[in-house]
Amino acid sequence: MSASTICESDLVGVECSGSVGIVTLRRPSARNALSVQMLEDLARILRDCDAAPEVRCILLTGGEAVFSAGADIDALSGYTAATYPDSVNRHAFDAIRATRTPVVAAVAGYCLGGGCEIALGCDVIVAADTARFSQPEINLGFIPGAGGTQLWALRAGQGAQAHAALTGEMMDAFAARRAGLVDMIVPACALKDAALQLATQIAAKAPLASRAAKAAMRAPWGAPLHAALEQEVALMSGLLASEDASEGIAAFLEKRSPRFAGR
């Protein structure tokens, strides 16, 4: 497969700049909320970029205004404890993390929930000074279900991960940089150029060595992390059967404070 044969979609764009495949989330009316179709398209396009020999680095962005506000809650409300483990959502995130080609995330504005988990699955995160990171799932009565209880610790440590998962609080770009969550901060207007410059630098290196380096760095993501991610999915699935999760989703959609009952 060549880069020229990679088909974009209405929700996820793709273009090439030299040896860099630029993949863009484009659902601005919903702040790039991750619908089922968007996740399917993103996973497919990343697989296609991965299979194109001339693509030596991938740049993943949501644009200068927002990366992603997280999962589409309307879509998430359709999952149950029985259906979530084999859901499109779950398998799409698996496919994103399985990309062998180095991936640079260019993050501006909101990077929340599932959007944050996508960014954390990338190799390098370049953040605009407007970037805001959060795992707000606890506010809806469930937990991150695509790596958010594991991937923060790999970058920012257990303390930052616990704070993110248990409070749902927002972390700005500068706090994220101090914590080690992001690797570089630039003005929002310079985000794409700075991230593309870095991606181009990576793409200029020996492609076999780049993939080998990525595989070696991700070796600790093997059995122990895989087992932890499986447990995360099982716990998330169980929570989707709870009254609290139903109440949290309903409250979000109705724009009111949730009334959790602990069942």
Rank of each mutant, 00 (worst) to 15 (best):
C7V: 14
E8C: 06
L11Q: 12
E15D: 13
S19Q: 12
G21V: 01
G21N: 04
I22M: 06
L25H: 02
R26P: 03
R26S: 13
R27Y: 11
R31V: 07
N32D: 04
N32G: 10
A33R: 01
V36S: 06
I45S: 06
D48V: 06
C49Q: 02
A52S: 03
P53Q: 02
E54Y: 05
E54K: 00
C57P: 07
T61P: 12
G62M: 10
G62I: 05
G63Q: 09
E64T: 15
V66I: 14
S68M: 10
I73Q: 10
L76K: 00
S77P: 14
G78P: 14
T80K: 04
T80Q: 02
T83P: 10
D86H: 12
S87W: 00
S87L: 02
S87H: 02
R90L: 06
A92Q: 05
F93P: 10
I96V: 15
V104Y: 00
G109P: 04
Y110P: 04
Y110K: 13
G115D: 06
I118M: 11
L120F: 03
G121A: 15
T130N: 01
Q135R: 01
L140M: 13
G141R: 05
F142C: 13
G145Q: 04
T149N: 03
G157R: 01
A162W: 09
A164E: 05
T167L: 08
T167H: 05
F174C: 15
F174W: 12
A176M: 11
A176C: 08
R178L: 15
A179K: 08
G180Q: 10
G180P: 15
L181Q: 03
M184N: 03
I185K: 14
V186K: 09
V186T: 06
V186Q: 09
C189A: 15
D193T: 09
L196R: 03
L196N: 09
L198E: 06
L198D: 06
T200P: 08
T200M: 06
A203H: 05
K205R: 11
A206R: 02
A209R: 08
A209M: 08
A213H: 02
A216V: 07
A234E: 08
G238H: 05
A241M: 12
D244R: 11
A245N: 10
A245E: 06
E247K: 05
L253P: 15
L253V: 13
R256E: 05
S257V: 14
P258V: 04
R259C: 13
A261I: 09
G262H: 07
R263A: 14
